[in-house]
Design a protein around this nucleic acid. Structure first.
Length: 277
DNA sequence: TATTCTCTAAAGTTTACGTCA
DNA sequence: GATGACGTAAACTTTAGAGAA
């Protein structure tokens, strides 16, 4: 059974495209103008001016924090535990990775505060994601600067975005397979019915004799020419003519029926921003 | 060639926040 | 207006694989 006649376009993800744009982070000129213009007046979404990201926290090469898991864990629950241990380095890094942690004058409030990204920030992130769903460190840094976010935030956003994309694709694939299944079930039902009818006809020979023989389509595997033949007669009716091949006998095989050949399945582009219900 | 280290993506989880009844 | 349920998104943790030393 040829279930996967034509796999959904995105069933196979190219998630391993390590550095699709290895070169320095660059936007297309036109979009650059747009995004940059609005970013000048960007709403940093409750980021106090004093908490502007200090990119010196990154290492000398401008690469994001040596171990993303370190920086991430520091800013979270672990920051509670470790900050209490008086680890100055970690505390410093924590303040790096989360520019907004000590906002609200919370002082000792170590619960993670969620920063809702502004429309403009989301828009630019989406735009960037449409072009490249992964970022190299330089690109991450540049984008972070542009958005006035920490590189870690950009990194997290891209991770989450990839996860959402995949989830969406999974849903689409699931729907596709469901419809394939439905079509096969229908086809099966139809064929069973046909078999029943044929059996019934066979039981009444008189009728059977007056019937035209069942017609089957066959195809030459070499030249792919179609041949219409009757199963009860050796005289073939071939519109294109049964083609003999110099290589050998005229092997014919039935044309596989593709139950979902006409399926009107349209795959949404994954990059389309998820519309909130 | 095997080992160690670093970095990052993916998968899964937690939690803050917004919305709606 | 207060509240709880619920969905979503940001942040986090763990794991695994790739590449370099």
């Amino acid at each position: 059974m040829n279930l996967m006649h034509k796999p959904p376009p995105q069933l196979v993800q190219n998630h391993n495209q390590k550095t699709p744009w290895n070169e320095m982070f660059q936007f297309p000129a036109e979009r650059n103008q747009d995004t940059r213009s609005f970013l000048r007046g960007i709403d940093v979404n409750r980021l106090p001016a004093s908490s502007t990201v200090d990119y010196n926290c990154e290492d000398e090469n401008g690469v994001s924090s040596p171990n993303s898991t370190i920086s991430s864990s520091i800013s979270g629950k672990r920051s509670e535990r470790e900050a209490n241990n008086g680890d100055e380095n970690d505390a410093e890094r924590a303040s790096c990775s989360r520019g907004s942690d000590d906002e609200d004058g919370g002082g000792g409030d170590t619960s993670r505060k969620k920063l809702r990204l502004s429309k403009e920030q989301s828009l630019l992130l989406e735009e960037t994601f449409k072009e490249h769903n992964t970022l190299n460190p330089k690109q991450k840094l540049a984008l972070a600067k542009q958005l006035n976010l920490s590189p870690r935030q950009v990194e997290v956003w891209f991770q989450n975005r990839r996860a959402r994309t995949k989830l969406k694709q999974t849903e689409v694939d699931c729907e596709y397979l469901k419809r394939c299944c439905e079509n096969l079930t229908d086809e099966n039902r139809r064929l069973q019915k046909e078999v029943q009818e044929l059996r019934a006809l066979k039981l009444s020979p008189q009728l059977y004799m007056h019937m035209n023989p069942p017609t089957t389509l066959t195809m030459c595997p070499s030249c792919e020419r179609v041949n219409v033949s009757s199963s009860s007669s050796s005289s073939m009716v071939a519109p294109t003519g049964p083609t003999r091949h110099p290589q050998g006998p005229n092997v014919q095989r039935p044309i596989p029926i593709n139950p979902w050949a006409t399926l009107p399945i349209h795959h949404r582009p994954l990059d389309a921003p998820a519309s909130r219900s």
